[in-house]
Design a protein around this nucleic acid. Structure first.
Length: 599
RNA sequence: CGGGCUAUGGCGCAGCUUGGUAGCGCGCCUGACUGGGGGUCAGGAGGCCGUGGGUUCGAAUCCCGCUAGCCCGACCA
């Protein structure tokens, strides 16, 4: 196939679009791959569409390879299925809702769990039909509060989403493992560095989940990694729990006056005045901070929880939200926010600034069994035998040497503390560092959440109805195009990897002699005959500088120049990425280019 | 949702302070020259100055409202 620039629908821009911040966005617009149609919504031009199709083809091949079967759902869907799973409301403002002429509610699908589940329910009813893996490559719609970075976060985007249906957990594990392998292959073929990181399932429900992150500074997901290979989303990081300490020799705790110490900083300063210790100054790490948060339950109920953590640490509400469900004896989504003044007024036993689990003597304050009756969870670092300075539940007083397990108890532990650079990796592989990444894919074991709410059941070997277990797996296809552009460019333009480049060879003529054009035509035709895809810059009366500039901007991996060298029987062949160039005899140039393209 | 900035030909911008027939660069069209790094010259086409109202003889420019966009944050399978 030969794409002639003299007729191709293409206009390159000399200047960066003013609304673009990241390189992929600037270059894809400048090089004529995409155009903005509305915020977060892009039109695909001929060059862009070719790259997109190649990325899709790779995804499709690998999904087919694990037995996936491609289907295609509408993007415009009726409300009912999403009502049944609760997502019509749960999805909130991010859902594009609309009405038909009769006033019936519709939506533009943000993801298709419901439709896949209903389709399988429609057609299958026996364990013999399972497992089945279905997928589609399709537009998704999410009314993001703030679309940004061009294709990296759009309101319309293309996603490959697949869904596995199994009779039991072992089947789900297999489906999950197969998808994981397929994803690693997809990203490897795309030439994208990928780190699978442990993630929490979040609003999708279910248990096991991994994100496939492409590390890059423009990414919007923060994750942590260790030199030894550990990688995880901050929500999923687990704390290295210290050993219990023998407290038999520790002195009894003592309540002391610590006037005007409502914050950890003021407390540490006063503690060093009123109760200096031999083993060096008190620090924030010696204090036990008790933070009140409010959990908004799916039922609408608002429940207070106190979290105890070392005073030198901060609560990470997202981590709390990701990990609190098990402590509330309730399914569904819980929203976490800081407690308000009102919350505290309703619980007079919680003394702001001077809260503590108890004074170790007469009564406990925090905990479901204690005076306040408020659920008390602690950071895993609070192990039996650790000794703390903490609030004595009266203004201006703190208790010193309060020993965990001896003087106070708790209802459970929770991963709730901000992960910091330098914290140890849970698998002992070294200190954690934070990094940024783009989420390129995500795999979930959904379990039976959707199958239950939509009543997808099949008969098992014993003729009993059992609920099917599901997995859901996504790859951001348009996002992959952006990530590829982000990773493969220099200051002159794009530099596509071979697998996804819009063409194999960018052939250009410089000069005006008819023989130059005639020779270039012959080369283009010969390459075409060999199945090589050629972008042919056959524009007459366009200066060499413009042609070189456009070739480098468009970013096809191999550039061939028919020009002044032809007088000596030579054609210049350049590698876009390395910049290396060599002169090849005209007679050999087609073979040389074919070899370069086919590796 | 909070904060900041912006809105003028396809793209990037000036003009606004001090109201008076809308301008520059790129791109586009015609011709000539040039012909290996966005070249030169000449001549053209193309604009409801985001939108509604107000002030004024007269508004891109001053005043009020609205809308949209971008950036930072919050949010985000």
């Amino acid at each position: 196939m030969v794409l002639r620039l003299s007729t191709m629908f293409l206009r390159t821009l000399r200047e960066d679009p003013v609304d673009a911040e990241v390189a992929s966005h600037k270059l894809l617009v400048r090089a004529g791959y995409i155009r903005r149609a509305a915020p977060g919504i892009y039109s695909w031009l001929p060059l862009g569409l070719r790259v997109l199709a190649k990325v899709e083809a790779i995804v499709r091949e690998e999904m087919n390879a694990i037995g996936g079967q491609e289907v295609h759902f509408p993007a415009l869907l009726p409300r009912e299925p999403y009502e049944a799973t609760g997502r019509w409301t749960e999805y909130g403002d991010a859902l594009f809702r609309l009405q038909d002429r009769k006033g019936a509610d519709y939506l533009l699908a943000p993801t298709h769990e419901e439709m896949f589940t209903l389709l399988v329910k429609d057609l299958y009813n026996s364990y013999k039909d399972l497992p089945v893996y279905l997928y589609q490559i399709q537009n998704k719609y999410r009314d993001e509060a703030r679309p940004r970075a061009g294709l990296l976060r759009g309101r319309e985007f293309i996603m490959k989403d697949s869904y596995s249906f199994d009779i039991d957990d072992a089947g789900l594990d297999t489906a999950y493992a197969k998808h994981r392998e397929a994803y690693l292959k997809i990203f490897s073929r795309l030439g994208l560095e990928i780190l699978p990181v442990k993630a929490t399932a979040g609003a999708m429900g279910g248990s096991k989940s991994e994100e496939f992150l492409h590390p890059t500074p423009v990414g919007e997901d923060t994750f942590v990694r260790s030199a030894g290979g550990y990688a995880a989303n901050v929500e999923a990081v687990t704390t290295v729990v210290p050993e219990d300490i023998d407290y038999s020799t520790l002195p009894a705790c003592q309540v002391k006056d610590t006037p005007d110490t409502p914050t950890i900083d003021t407390l540490v300063a006063v503690a060093n005045e009123v109760a200096p210790r031999d083993a060096g100054e008190w620090t924030a790490a010696d204090t036990l901070k008790n933070v009140v948060i409010a959990a908004k339950m799916p039922t609408g109920e608002r429940r207070l929880v106190v979290i105890g953590l070392p005073g030198d640490r901060a609560v990470d509400l997202k981590r709390v939200e990701a990990n609190i469900a098990g402590h509330l004896e309730i399914g569904g989504e819980v929203e976490i926010e800081a407690a308000t003044e009102d919350d505290l007024k309703k619980n007079p036993s919680l003394v702001k600034g001077y809260m503590g689990p108890g004074n170790g003597l007469d009564h406990a304050v925090l905990g479901t069994e204690a005076a306040s009756g408020v659920l008390y969870l602690v950071d895993p670092r609070v192990v039996s035998g650790t000794s703390w300075i903490t609030g004595a539940n009266e203004p201006g007083r703190h208790v010193f040497g309060l020993v965990a397990g001896r003087d106070f108890g708790w209802d459970g532990t929770i991963e709730c503390v901000e992960v910091r650079e330098g914290d140890p990796a849970p698998d002992g592989s070294g200190p954690l560092r934070t990094a940024r990444g783009i989420e390129m894919g995500h795999i979930f074991q959904l379990g039976r959440k959707y199958a239950e709410s939509l009543e997808l059941k099949v008969l098992d070997q014993n003729g009993k109805l059992v609920t099917v277990t599901m997995g859901s797996y996504g790859v951001g296809v348009t996002r992959a195009v952006a990530a590829l552009a982000e990773t493969n460019h220099d200051d002159r333009g794009l530099m596509w990897p071979r697998n996804v480049a819009p063409a194999d060879v960018h052939l250009m003529v410089t000069g005006k002699g008819a023989e130059l054009f005639a020779e270039a035509e012959r080369i283009a035709a010969a390459l075409d005959a060999q199945g090589i895809e050629v972008i042919f810059d056959d524009r007459p009366k366009v200066s060499a500088g413009v042609k070189f500039g456009d070739a480098e901007l468009v970013g096809v991996p191999t550039i061939a120049v028919v020009g002044r060298g032809l007088a000596e029987g030579l054609v210049e062949v350049k590698d876009r990425a390395s910049g290396t160039a060599e002169n090849i005899p005209v007679a050999d140039v087609v073979g040389h280019l074919v070899d370069a393209v086919r590796g």
